[in-house]
């Protein structure tokens, strides 16, 4: 499997995710935002960070980058795309995923480990999770409050397009374990064709027992599962 991590000015999890991809034997290359064409690739990763300083709206300016046209073409062909944190925000601004990410309800940046329930394992990113698995991953964001109108929420729920929901340690999806105010505790969504995943938590930060867990590793091993 080959991957391309797009580097925007202000990306800061590009190296972290490249390290994770390589750890699981995915052949990765870094792609500069100003390039017009993706190299031959199976997976495109939009990494976390503060592309363009989060100025104007998070992810907005990056979504106007030259490379994005080819990322959209890649998506239309059914290619895999993973957007983590700022990458998720860029995917939404680029129109590749629905909804919008508002400021956290507490109006503060939040960096902590959260519990997540895996609610869809029927996609390439989550194949190795078990349905309803409770996992732990770090979040680190200021604008992760996923908001969708009623009709969209219903569509996402009905079509099973939600990958992860914030939950408590027992797997209960309740308000107290919703760190940022997201509608229906949504932490990650997938596209209708299930080839695009956008998520606020950082799987690439938890791939090592030394760093108190490996729940993120499973996402990467899923990617290479045929």
């Amino acid at each position: 499997m080959r991957s391309s991590v797009i580097v925007f000015p202000g990306s800061n999890c590009d190296r972290d995710v490249a390290v994770a991809l390589e750890k699981f034997h995915i052949k990765n290359q870094m792609v500069w935002h100003n390039d017009t064409n993706l190299p031959k690739t199976d997976l495109v990763v939009l990494p976390g960070g503060f592309s363009y300083g989060d100025y104007l709206r998070t992810g907005c300016i990056a979504s106007k980058s030259k490379i994005i046209d080819d990322v959209i073409r890649h998506a239309k062909k059914g290619g895999l795309i993973l957007g983590i944190c700022n990458g998720f925000q860029i995917l939404i601004e680029a129109g590749l995923l629905p909804g919008i990410l508002l400021r956290n309800i507490g109006l503060r940046f939040l960096s902590k480990n959260v519990f997540l329930k895996v609610v869809n394992t029927d996609n390439q990113f989550c194949l190795n999770y078990k349905n309803k698995d409770i996992i732990q991953l770090p979040i680190a964001h200021n604008e992760g409050n996923f908001f969708a109108k009623k009709e969209l929420l219903k569509m996402l729920e009905d079509n099973n397009l939600i990958a992860f929901k914030y939950c408590n340690k027992n797997g209960e999806i309740e308000e107290n374990s919703n760190p940022n105010g997201s509608s229906n505790n949504i932490a990650g969504v997938i596209s209708e064709k299930k080839n695009i995943l956008g998520m606020m938590p950082h799987p690439e930060r938890l791939i090592d027992p030394l760093l108190s867990g490996e729940d993120g590793s499973i996402l990467f091993t899923s990617l290479i599962k045929s």
Partner: peptide, 17 residues
């Protein structure tokens, strides 16, 4: 003081042990 340090990204770079 977690109210304070949870506002700082302390896990980016993937090497916070």
């Amino acid at each position: 003081k977690s109210w304070v340090w949870e506002q700082y990204d302390h896990t980016v770079m993937g090497d916070t042990v």
